[in-house]
Design a protein around this nucleic acid. Structure first.
Length: 532
RNA sequence: GCACCCGUAGCUCAAUUUGGCAGAGCAGGCGACUCUUAAUCGUCGGGUUGAAGGUUCGAGUCCUUCCGGGUGUACCA
């Protein structure tokens, strides 16, 4: 394997350190002039920011702490409304509510407003006669802004229009905001701002908050399912001396004190299978993978992956488990096996169609890749059909290209494609009776690949041969070829039982369940270039 | 990586086609208003039009370069 530049240097640690110390500009978060941006002069403040700071000073001058250390809350917004509707709150019962002031309608001596907490919004009615003229006019109307966190005490009732409302007898500032909030009606739309300042996106757009609740529910359901099936959740290294388990370029990092080059993992596979050598029969891990590749609407440099490995099953068993697991998740998260997807509906009811990859490509493109036993002949027929077929692509990569072009976009309903080329599956077991096909499947839905699985190769000598083939690919320029992991081969020599393994991108599954077509919509803080 | 599109007030958007005083709503300041809910009414402030350069009497608008973002495409989950 060709090592990246740092380790080929005879004094690797020296070169990296000097590189750091020679950097012209220290990171901005260490710059002495940083206070300029955090503590701008008055001229640099917006008029609205100035107004809020003046209010802050007025409050302090009046002996009011704009950021008090604690507050008492008796109900969330939703709880207060529910309790009133269920008749648990009488006219005399005082509730204490907290939240962000998100809307305010001042009508002289009476004001209606809404506060929002984690449970939702509740209307409050603030009256001068209940609060006192001074407190109502000077404190509530003048020094409290939209966006501020407040605590109120009051009684629950209903307005003429029928909205359950808290009539306020006391109001307290909990946290002063110094910047104006996004538009109350349109929310925050600018996609760049939404991602760079996700907190604004979340506070302005409730539907975004729902996406990440649903994401959490999906992960919870996956854990529930796997735990219930006797799988052990484990954690394996993210910093790895040798990466592996997938075809991808890694991120490279460096341990300063061990003088060791390390990679951020691109998959969990080789570590998890070592655990089956160790005697566990069912293990899984949910965590972050890192791939040093292009960014797109389907790819973020770091993404969340689920992998599980199960002894004494094969890819057929894993397909059945996949169907069962995703049906469980759909039912648990969406309350149905059918989930909306654009104008259509994706039905996760088992079983899913199982189509040999060769057949699927033949049906969609008219090309039977078995007629083209080498890369050159397959490349020729693909180019005849006007497809982009790179000169350095292997036969397996060309087949994958056919899959991506002709088949994948049309697989809206959950579908398994089975039996993949061996040369792009160096960790999968050969399908009996074939020369260059492995027992591997990929699951598709919504026109996206969502999972990848196979009968795990457990023949150590075959595995070594496959690694050596990968090294030849790497030497030929395939930057994504697998490096040789000698310790993994060594582990196999102590015996890996027949095993089925599975990997699935959680981000893409979340896209599917949330009707999103861009991965950034399901990652709280997606990778962005630095601001200029 | 390549192609195309976008960047105007804190936010959402006009003005760009055909170069001619940079505007509206929300938000904000001041004032009125005790059942509103995108409250309403009056009034006022708020801009290095992403950055730099160029063409022009005159550039938000046309040209060049750069920065950031989006969409498509290529590879990968």
């Amino acid at each position: 394997m060709a090592a990246p530049c740092v380790s080929t240097h005879p004094a690797a640690s020296y070169s990296l350190k000097s590189c750091i110390s020679n950097r012209q500009d220290p990171p901005s978060h260490f710059r002495a002039d940083m206070t300029d941006t955090i503590a701008p002069t008055e001229q640099e403040l917006l008029d609205q920011e100035l107004a809020r700071r003046e209010k802050l000073e007025r409050l302090r001058a009046a002996g009011i702490d704009p950021y008090p250390p604690r507050v008492e809350r008796t109900h969330t917004a939703a709880e207060a409304i529910a309790a009133y509707r269920e008749g648990q709150l009488g006219e005399e019962d005082v509730v204490k509510l907290t939240g962000r002031l998100v809307a305010r309608r001042i009508m002289g001596k009476l004001t209606f407003a809404h506060i929002e907490d984690g449970s939702g919004r509740v209307q409050i009615m603030v009256r001068r006669d209940l609060l006192g003229a001074e407190r109502y006019n000077e404190f509530f109307k003048k020094d409290i802004d939209l966006g501020d966190f407040v605590g109120v005490a009051g009684t629950m009732g209903v307005t003429r229009t029928g909205e359950v409302t808290c009539t306020v007898t006391d109001i307290q500032l909990l946290a002063k905001t110094l910047k104006p909030l996004p538009d109350k009606w349109h929310g925050l739309k600018d996609p760049e701002l939404r991602q760079r300042q996700r907190y604004l996106d979340l506070l302005a757009n409730p539907e975004v908050r729902e996406v990440f609740r649903r994401r959490a529910a999906i992960v919870r359901a996956l854990r529930e399912y796997l735990d219930g099936e006797g799988f052990l959740e484990v954690e394996t290294p993210i910093l790895q001396p040798i990466y592996g388990g997938a075809a991808a370029e890694p991120f490279v990092t460096y341990h300063n004190y061990l003088h060791q080059q390390l990679y951020l993992r691109i998959s969990f596979e080789l570590y998890l299978k070592r655990l089956l050598v160790g005697g566990y029969e069912r293990v899984y891990e949910i965590g972050r993978d890192f791939r040093n590749e292009g960014i797109s609407h389907k790819h973020n440099p770091e993404f969340t992956q689920l992998e599980f490995y199960e002894a004494y099953t094969d890819y057929n068993g894993v397909m059945a488990r996949t169907e069962e697991m995703l049906a469980y998740v759909a039912q648990k998260v969406m309350g149905s096996l059918k989930i909306p997807w654009g104008d259509e509906e994706i039905d996760f009811t088992p079983p899913w169609p199982r189509i040999p990859l060769r057949q699927a490509i033949l049906d969609a493109s008219g090309i039977d890749y078995e007629d083209y036993p080498d890369a050159d002949s397959l490349r020729a027929v693909m180019r005849d059909k006007g497809l982009d077929a790179p000169a350095d692509a292997s036969r397996g990569k060309l087949i994958d290209k056919l899959l991506g072009h002709f088949v994948e976009p049309n697989l809206i309903q959950p579908t398994f494609l089975i039996d993949y080329p061996l040369d792009v599956s160096p960790l999968a077991k050969r399908k009996p009776g074939t020369r260059d096909t492995v027992e591997r499947f990929e699951g598709f839905a919504g026109g996206m690949e969502i999972c990848n699985a196979f009968s795990e190769l457990n023949d150590p000598l075959d595995q070594l041969e496959r690694f050596l083939a990968q090294r030849r690919d790497f030497d030929m320029g395939d930057k994504e070829a697998h490096p040789i992991d000698e310790d993994y081969v060594n582990a196999l020599m102590y015996g890996l039982p027949p095993t089925g393994g599975f990997g699935m991108g959680i981000d893409r599954l979340t896209m599917l369940f949330c009707g999103q077509t861009n991965i950034r919509e399901v990652i709280l803080f997606p990778h962005l270039r630095p601001e200029s």
